[in-house]
Design a protein around this nucleic acid. Structure first.
Ligand SMILES: [Mn+2]
Ligand SMILES: [Mn+2]
Ligand SMILES: [Zn+2]
Ligand SMILES: [Zn+2]
Lengths: 143, 143
DNA sequence: TTACTAAACAGTAACCAGTATAAACTAATT
DNA sequence: AATTAGTTTATACTGGTTACTGTTTAGTAA
C-alpha cells in the first residue's frame, strides 16, 4: 500500500480536501492490518481522533476504492466487507474457523479463461481463495 | 445438486423431521436458480406455501450448509449471502455491473498451494472468481 | 387411534453493516 | 478576512439476518 503522504497527494491532485480525519485514516491504513473491516479502521482511527464519525470512515474508504487505492474483499460468513490495501493481483487464504484472511504470494499462471468458458464476459481481474483451517484452529478443533 | 428426495432421506437419516416446509424448500432448491439468496428461495417457496416464515427458510438453508449440501458464496457489494447448490469444486464468473453469478466449468490444474505458501493451513477447497462485465452490461455501459 | 414430546414453525423484535439526509463546519481559494 | 464548495457529524433509516417466544406438528410408541 502507498504511504499516507502518497494518498494525501493523490487526494489533492483529485481536487479533494485534506482533513485531519482523512489524514488519520490514511495513516491507519498505511501502518495497519492487512484486511481490515470498516469498523476496524474506525476503531483504530478513533484512538487518535475520538470524535470522528463512522460515516467519515465509510466515505473515505469508498473514495479510496473508487480511486483504486483499496480493493473490496468479501468475507464469507462475517457479513462485513473488508478492505485490501494490497491492490496488486494476489490471492488469499481464508480460515474457516477464525476468519483470518492472509495473502498468498503465489502467482498462478494459466488462469486465463478460454473464450468459450467466459460466456462473453469481459474479465477485469480474478481472485483465488483457498479455504481451510489455520494452525491455531487445527489445534483447537482437530479433525 | 441432489434431488429433493435425497435431501429428505438425508434429513431423516440425521434424525431431523420432514415437514411440508422443508420439502418445499428442497424442491425449490432442486429445480431452482443456481445461486439464490435466502430471499429468493423464500419468494419461490412462498408461491406454493404462502404462510411459510422467512425464518424457516433461513434455518433450513443453514442446516443444509451444515450438512454440506449447500455452499455459501459471497457476493461483493450486494450484502446478501448466496447459496450454491453445486457443492463440487467449480469456479465463478461474477458481473460487476448486474451481479450475475455464473458457474465456470473449467478446472484449473496446478492450483495446489506449495507447502511453503500455505502458512500451515490445512486447505479444504479453493475457489477462483473472475470479475468482469457480462455481455448485457458491456452494451449498456461500454468502455 | 390417540397421546406424548421434542422438534420445528410463525411472528415479532432486535441486531448489524451500511446508506441517506441535512445541518454545521472548515479547507482551500480569493 | 470573506467566500464557498466540499466535508463532517448526528440521526434516521434500510436490508439482511438472528434471537426469542409461544404455538403447532412430525414421529413414536402405548
Ligand atoms: Mn490481500
Ligand atoms: Mn456455483
Ligand atoms: Zn483460524
Ligand atoms: Zn451484468
Amino acid at each position: 500500500m502507498k504511504s499516507a503522504e502518497d494518498m494525501v497527494a493523490l487526494f489533492r491532485q483529485q481536487g479533494l480536501k485534506i482533513t485531519p480525519q482523512r489524514r488519520a485514516i490514511f495513516e491507519t491504513l498505511a501502518e495497519g492490518a492487512v484486511h481490515p473491516s470498516a469498523e476496524e479502521v474506525y476503531r483504530r482511527v478513533q484512538e487518535g481522533l475520538p470524535d470522528i464519525s463512522r460515516m467519515t470512515v465509510y466515505n473515505t474508504l469508498r473514495e479510496l476504492v473508487a480511486l483504486g487505492e483499496l480493493v473490496e474483499v468479501e468475507d464469507v460468513s462475517s457479513s462485513a466487507m473488508r478492505y485490501d490495501t494490497e491492490t496488486g493481483n494476489h490471492h488469499h487464504l481464508f480460515c474457516l474457523g477464525c476468519h483470518a484472511l492472509v495473502d498468498v504470494d503465489q502467482s498462478f499462471e494459466a488462469l486465463e479463461l478460454p473464450q468459450a468458458a467466459a460466456a462473453g464476459y469481459r474479465i477485469v481481474r480474478h481472485q483465488v481463495t483457498f479455504y481451510g483451517y489455520c494452525p491455531t484452529c487445527q489445534k483447537s478443533n482437530p479433525r
